[in-house]
Write a protein that binds this DNA or RNA. Sequence first.
DNA 1: CACGAGACCTGTTCGC
DNA 2: TGCGAACAGGTCTCGT
Length: 274
Amino acid sequence: MPELPEVETIVRKLRDGGETPALPGMRIQKASIRWPKHIGAPSVSSFRRRIRGRVISDVQRRGKFLVLPLDKGTLLIHLRMSGDLYLLPSELPRGPYEHTIFHIKPDWQLRFSDSRKFGRVYLLDNPDQILGQLGPEPLDPSFTVDQFAERLAHRRRALKPLLLDQAFIAGLGNIYTDEALHLAGIHPEIHSDTLTRSQVQDLLEGIRTALNEGLRHNGASIDWVYRGGNYQNQFRVYQRTGKPCIKCGTPIHRITLGQRGTHFCPTCQPERSS
DNA sequence: CACGAGACCTGTTCGC
DNA sequence: TGCGAACAGGTCTCGT
């Protein structure tokens, strides 16, 4: 479930609280780790030792990473394909996929559920070591069309895989990339260095529209994994293979691009302009 | 540098 | 009904 809007939704819930207490200010007593590969760094034993007693000072997001600055060090959590992160009362039984659990204060637990076990947790003195490799935040107002055009022009790749590259731009995943390209009316195989200025502008607007729509609906919940958001009911192309394009009625196509299912409207997103 | 294939894992859905 | 194949929101590594 984790692209930018889903991660941001989780961040806001944990940071601000509501049904559960807000996370900032809470102290981690210890971590239970039943799937050691969840810990990307440092070693599991060192992680266990260093996480004890840390106070969470904030909950933030960078790209698809949850960023939890502590009184000493920073916790980074990446949900990858099937991860979810939530606060539950300690007395509730542990779910089958809650492989990593942070014991908080007296009776709360921050649980990292991850059926596919692709997720990763890092405890770092310098989080920039990882976050520094990420591209710009698409929703950051200081990221301009000019800058985007510049980055696109310096690459020579099909747009779809390029937009999925977190070092190129951070936070987009398979859903929002397909939705953004449809909003922009651009074919996913168009190469980044051939876009016109107006297409670059359309693309950035498409990206921002898709992400903001996702945020407004608290993210997308597909299949069995993530519950909460509603954006899946607004999809224009994603997982709508064969169904009519909501703009022109043409059946949506599905191809594989960069090993990812890619959905688009062959009419609204022509392979070559003119 | 770009690209494809294979890994990493588990669960659900599809096709015969 | 049963069983294997295909597919899934992500990313890394290796070979060409």
